[in-house]
Structures are given as structure tokens and as C-alpha cells.
Amino acid sequence: MKPVLEVRDLMVTYPPRRGAAPARAVDGVNLQVRQGEIVALVGESGCGKSTLARALVGLVKPTGGQVLGGGEPLGYSAAALKAYRRHTQLVLQDPGGALNPRQNVFDAVAEGPRLHGLTDRLGERVHAALARAGLRPPEEFAGRFPHEMSGGQQQRVVIAGALALEPSVIVADEPVASLDASVRGEILKLILELRDSLGLSALVVSHDLGLAWNIADRVAVMYLGRIVETGTVEEVLLRPKHPYTRALLSVLPDSDERPVLLTGEPPDPAAVPGGCRFHPRCPLRAAEQDTLCDSRDLPVLTGDPSGSSLAACHLVH
């Protein structure tokens, strides 16, 4: 089965700021999203997860590697990007910022179809998208402006805007981070429903491991530009291999594990350590005093989702 969305050896390097080295935000990533699958990409701020999301929808041009939509390499001409984005839509974190305050709901949702010349029975299309996003009855919401809606409703409008183009995959960057706890669950439910009813695939970027447990089939843990562990949600979250994943899980308030607090400097993509990139903060290396970690680079994990979980670590296997 061909993945609906794939990246191969993706690199995104931002040009250096004055005096500094270039920032390797995404530093070799393989990842696949298959039909009807929800993949969670988790990591802390600065790990490159948002850059990867932007590269997936063609907003950032990779400096190396490939993005493939439906098996086809993504072209970066305006026309190619436009065609690509009919099938791959981005949902952003802060719906208040994503929506134009002077545009009503109908126009916000109709913007995509209009850009793509899908003006035939536009009203029907917009209303169907609103209803799918849970804004029912759609007629009641179409005339409203963002400020007349709650945060949860605004996020539903953003999702409706993505759905109006009937995409095959949605890339959602922290779709619930700015929402209240009770609303969060409702939006996550919606993403699951869309997968079940439309077969929609999704890559959800988040710092929240609970979100992955709630909705994802597979999870990829990112650290400093690389995916350090990937597998099914059960494998990675219940039987984590990589010391970074283990540390992340251990500091959750509900964890039974003894919390492993990582110390040291926060990771800086402009100064990626040699050897294993996690070694300066790794509790396992500290315990085992293994010099392999400091010197030998790790191979990039394959994006192939069919095998068991993978961890980029010298010490666990």
C-alpha cells in the first residue's frame, strides 16, 4: 500500500543568523502516513516538529530529501504546490490567528474552493464541510464572524476550511494546544470521526503524549531534528525503548515511573552534538559511560511502519 504522505531523508536547514552556524531544524527524517492512519509527531519545542509539518505541506522547501504525496515527489512550482495542497491541508494551532477577523465563516471556508476554482455549488460544499466539522446546522454558523464564536468553534471553522477541499490527508500542528480542556476532547473526537467516516489520514504534531494516546495509531518521537523512536502508540508509549521517550513519559504527572529530569543545555539545532545527538543529556549514557554514544553517528530510522518499533540509540536493542 502506497503511503498518502511520505518524507524521505528530509533535511531543512535554516540559513545562519549573524555569527552562528546554520540551524539544522530537520536533520534527516523518514516518515510515512498511510491511508486512514493517524500519526502523532511528538517532541519538545525546538525539536523541528513544526518545521517538518510545514515542509510536509510545501510551505518550507527542504534543503535535502523529498516529500512525496500519494507516491509522487512534490514539485515546488506554484502550480504543483497548488495541486498538492488540494490533497494535503494544514490546520494550525491558534484558530484566532488563522482566521481573518473581518471574514465571516462562509467566506473563510470558501476561500480554498474558490482558489481552486471549485465554485460550482459552492454553497453546498461549504455547508457540507461545516456540518462535517460539527458546526450544525451550517446555515446558522455561515454568517458569523470569528469573534462571535468560542475557541472550539473557531478551530472547527479552520478544520472545515481544510475539509472543503476534500483532502486525503490533514497535517495538524498542535490542533488543540490553545483550547480548553473540555473542548480539546471534542476536537480530537472530530479528527477521529473524520478518519472513520471519510478515511481521512492525519499527521498530528504535538508536545502532548496524551494526545497520541487519545487518537493516534502510530507515534514518532522527535529530538533535535531527527526521529528517535517510532512505532505503534502501544509500543512506544507503553514499552518505550529510547531513553528520551522514557524520560518524557516519566515526567508526566500520572506516571508511575520515577521522574527522569533531563538536565543540561536545551537542544540547539545550530549546534547538534556529534555521535548520538541525545548523548549530552542522556541518563543511560551517563550510567553506562559508553564512548560509542559520543563518537559514532546513528543511522536515520527508516520510515517503514510495518515492522516493530525502532529506536535510534546505541544502548537499547
Partner: peptide, 23 residues
């Protein structure tokens, strides 16, 4: 309480819990 799932709790696996409506 349910809005923050406990990882490993089968009740919340692929079942996000929310609260319909808004404050």
C-alpha cells in the same frame, strides 16, 4: 479529569473525552 488521559488507560485509548458545549 477525563480530558487529560492517563497513558496506558484502555478507556481513553482512541477515545478522547470532551465535554460538549462551551463555558
Amino acid at each position: 479529569g477525563r480530558a487529560f488521559p492517563t497513558i496506558g488507560d484502555p478507556a481513553s485509548r482512541l477515545a478522547p473525552a470532551g465535554l460538549p458545549g462551551d463555558p
